[in-house]
Structure formats: C-alpha cells, structure tokens
Computed example of a mutant assay.
Amino acid sequence: MAELNSTPERSGTKTRSKKAALRVDLTAMVDLAFLLITFFMLTTTLSKPRAMQLTMPVGEEPGGQAESRTMTICLGKNNKALYYLGMAAHPIIPATVTDYSGSGLRKAIMETAQKVKKATGKTMLVIIKPAQTSVYGNLVNTLDEMKITDTQQYAVADCTGGYWFA
C-alpha cells in the first residue's frame, strides 16, 4: 500500500498541542495512473515510418542494358541539372543543361518519356546522379519531379564517370 506520511516539525521553545500525523493513502491514485497509461498505450496508433518505396531489380533485361530507354540526370551546382538519354559515350539525346522549374526538368522528363514510349513501347528508366557540388534540395526536387511525372522506375547513383559538370 502506498501512503504519504508527514510528521509535524518542532520549532521554537513553546509547547504546542500535539497534532496527529497526516496520512494520505495513494493506492487509488497509483492504480488510476497505471490504468490511464495502459489505456492510452493501447488506444493510440503508433506513427508509421515515412520511407520511400524501393523496388530492387530481379534480373537483367534480355539483350543487356536498356540504353535506349535510360535517362540520366546529373545534378550540379547553381540549381542546374544536366540530362541525356542513353549512354554517356554515345547519347541518343545529347547532354542538355536545364533548371528545376516546370518548364525545365519536368518538361524534359515528360518529352523524353514520350520519345522512349514511342520508340521502344516500354517505360523510361531514370538514373539520378547528384554531384558533390549539388544541394540536397535539388535531389528532393528531382525526386518530386519523378512523382509528378509518374516515372515508375528511377534510381539514385553516384556521379562517377560520364558527364561531370561544375
């Protein structure tokens, strides 16, 4: 049983009447506290982790790498991005510098996706390569563009080899 006891303190030299010690039984309050804690733990929903959906490739595509439908976006400094379609050594669409506006990167993604769909009949793959000089916000903007343009297959990779611009 939980209880709180206190004894009166003696102060001075005067004799006073004896007071009974104060006794408070805290059992009911402790029980109530545990009931409330248990109630709130069971009734609150736990927050779901906010994570990006990630799909890993199962196997290789027949005929090797899908060069004709792979768009590479290299993120650089000064809020600029460079994109090309195909391999860096022999691109199908030459490297072009753009910004992150709706008429910049979004338009480029949509136009390239249409060209890929028309030429191959398949959806476009996008590789996003942030450089050392790029800003985190630009990567977030590019990932937002992937969502806005409904690009289903994209990956974030290191900006090694290929085009590197400052």
Rank of each mutant, 00 (worst) to 15 (best):
S68E: 15
G86C: 05
L36Q: 04
M56N: 06
H90F: 06
T70Y: 03
D99M: 07
Q53S: 14
F40A: 09
I92D: 00
L85Q: 00
T55E: 10
K77W: 12
A21Y: 07
A88K: 05
D99S: 12
L36G: 07
T27A: 06
M71L: 15
I92W: 02
L22Y: 10
P91Q: 08
S47M: 09
I93S: 00
L82H: 03
T43E: 01
T96H: 08
P62H: 08
A66G: 14
Q53W: 06
E60G: 14
V30S: 09
Y84I: 04
K19W: 06
R23K: 14
V97G: 01
E60K: 14
Q65R: 13
A33G: 04
R23M: 05
M29S: 04
K77A: 14
L32Q: 13
K18D: 06
M29N: 01
A66I: 08
L46F: 09
T96N: 11
E67W: 15
F34Q: 15
N79I: 05
L35I: 14
I93C: 00
L85D: 00
M29P: 00
R69D: 04
M29I: 13
T27Q: 07
C74N: 04
A95I: 03
Y84F: 15
A20N: 13
G59K: 03
K77V: 09
A88E: 10
Y84V: 05
L54K: 15
L54Q: 14
S17T: 10
G59V: 04
A33C: 06
G59S: 10
E61Q: 11
E60F: 11
K19A: 11
P62T: 06
D31V: 03
L26M: 14
V30C: 09
V30K: 15
T43H: 01
P49Y: 12
A95L: 07
C74L: 04
Y83Q: 04
E67Q: 09
V24S: 02
Q53M: 09
E67S: 07
G76I: 00
L75W: 03
K80I: 12
P57F: 13
A81G: 01
E60L: 13
I73L: 01
L75K: 02
S68K: 08
G86D: 04
C74F: 02
R50I: 12
I93Q: 01
D25M: 04
T72H: 00
K19L: 11
T70S: 03
T55D: 06
T55A: 12
N78R: 03
P57Q: 12
K18M: 08
Y84L: 09
Y83V: 03
T45W: 07
